[in-house]
Design a protein around this nucleic acid. Structure first.
Lengths: 337, 337
DNA sequence: CTGTTAGCGCTTTCAT
DNA sequence: ATGAAAGCGCTAACAG
């Protein structure tokens, strides 16, 4: 059994109260006393019981991470994000609890689950725009940070990369290479990022006075297979296309394979830009030009906002808008070469 | 503020004691009373406070996952494992806490950290054989499940795939394709799996009476770059090789690239088998033949053993030995074709 | 500066 | 079948 405050009190000869205060660094304890108490604590290998501590202080020292929708939110993503969250959380002496729910609970259910466990807030990733409870989030009395879904409230905010800018960079890159007829394979419309990425594509095209009929854009669903279908569809309908902006690396790989299967060379006949810079982007052939999202920082900042809200009830959460960067690789080249 | 037992007691007109018993399904409560209490609880939206519960029962309802050494333990791995752990943990109404430490704490430090937070046990992944505190684990009074490091004790066990068999399957596959001069790129020797995979390679070679001088085996470090060096080294020293068994997919990709850079075709001149079946294995060209580890089940079973130990102090933990399977893809072909 | 008293929300003897 | 009382380990008024 681990030593308790009482044990330390007994050994040091002081009251439990004084021991508590000494150990918590309160100023109303004489240096001499503190020293004696510290020694006793050390001798007993005393470690405060956080469970007891929390019961009385009601100060949360842990946050939760909800990862909905395991399919869409690809592996590496969440790993890096977790990594970032961990580092931030550790810095503040917080803990990180994981929840993986496919069944989408209501906002209230989630808050209750967290409260029950003494969590101070939660990061939620993988939320679709058509989630019914999304509208309830801003009013919640519970600190929430969403990933890639715009939500703002006194206790709620979201983190995202600037998808518009990212998509726009992709287009700019292609235009700079001389491309003028650029198609897009997008993700499904239940993802906020899809709308943003389309917007970026649109801005990029318009900025250069390029035409992009509706049929230049194919709506996929982030799966590799849908990337394949998108490429097939677009090039069958529009053989004049010389480049494709694909809204995720996984779809881009599908597109790559499909294009090659159709006899096109990449980047000779067709250039392809992905989005995400996942692990495998560098390993496919040709290596994929893509827009990198810094998921580590993403996670770090998500945790930071959350903890700020928890530690200061008056803190107004800030939307975190991360830049993303183009990584030029082999899948893009000059137009008409 | 959330409703407490006291509130439910007040509303239902029974004592806190009876309410507690009713809600916990004890048998010494009349059906009528239970019903009334349930109703009151529902009306108040009562949720038991786990923190308080745990303080008094001292029954852990959460486990920790330590992921040491972020570099080596590649992304997808840990994600799938977490996924499996989550599902198992949820089933038992447990929670999962994450710890990502690069600094290797001692076994005692870790136990203390867990106990302090009321955790009942921990899964540790990414442990190297040269970790000094490894020897302390078996004696620990604290339930531990290691990943890929053989440890056994009354409260300690480990999960792993059968790496020997896996490696052997790789060799058998190559031999079946007619290969007789097969080199190996291994991981570093601080990883237990490296020794096992070498053993499997050895067994496979010996079973077919094939020679494998020491110089047929190159010791890498699981990095892509080391795979590259391994391929270069082996084929420079032994141009007679027709196949390579590479102890991880990441190294295998490095090897693939290096071989192609050296002018070899894969699988025309040289066949390559990897290990892991990571995400990108299917995306490289040619798609990588490899040994698949089922990390999801891995995680599930790790959690299962841990929870079994926590719930029953007399439970003797079992080593979980998972099969792994060869996935034949394009990087292997007939010898001398 | 230090100790006494109370209580966080819950479970658990032990009576009744 | 139900309740009173004690206590898990800790912190926080409030006195002195």
């Amino acid at each position: 059994m681990a030593a308790t405050l009482k044990d330390v009190a007994r050994l040091s000869g002081f009251s439990v109260t004084t021991v508590s205060r000494a150990l918590n660094g309160h100023s109303d304890v004489s240096e001499e006393t503190r020293k004696k108490i510290m020694d006793a604590a050390r001798a007993l290998d005393y470690v405060p019981n956080r469970v007891a501590q929390q019961l009385v202080t009601r100060k949360a020292s842990a946050i939760g991470l909800y990862s909905l929708d395991r399919e869409t939110f690809q592996n590496q993503f969440i790993t890096l994000m977790i990594s970032g969250m961990m580092d931030e959380v550790t810095k503040h002496d917080f803990n990180l609890l994981l929840f993986a729910t496919q069944r989408l609970l209501t906002a209230e259910e989630m808050v209750r689950q967290c409260r029950q466990r003494g969590l101070g807030g939660a990061v939620i990733s993988g939320v679709r725009l058509d989630e019914a409870w999304l509208a309830d989030l801003p009013q919640l009395e519970f600190p929430i940070v969403l990933v890639d879904v715009p939500v703002q409230g006194p206790k709620a905010t979201y983190v995202s990369v600037n998808n518009v800018l990212g998509a726009r960079q992709a287009v700019e890159h292609l235009v700079a290479l001389g491309h003028r007829r650029i198609g897009m394979v997008n993700g499904h419309s239940a993802a906020w990022v899809s709308h943003q990425r389309f917007l970026g594509y649109k801005q990029g095209m318009e900025a250069h006075g390029l035409a992009f009929p509706e049929s230049y854009v194919y709506e996929g669903d982030f799966s590799k297979e849908s990337g394949r279908r998108g490429a097939e569809h677009l090039l069958t309908a529009h053989p004049e296309l010389t480049a494709l902006f694909v809204a995720s690396d996984l779809m881009a790989v599908g597109a790559l394979e499909q294009l090659q299967a159709m006899g096109y060379t990449v980047p000779g006949d067709l250039s392809v830009v992905g989005f995400d810079d996942q692990d495998f982007a560098i390993h496919v052939s040709p290596p994929l030009t893509t827009i990198r999202q810094d998921m580590y920082t993403f996670g770090r900042l998500a945790a930071r906002e959350l903890i700020a809200m928890i530690n200061d009830p008056h803190y107004t959460p800030q939307h975190v808008d991360l830049p993303c960067t183009l990584v030029a690789r082999g899948s893009t080249g000059p137009a008409g070469s």
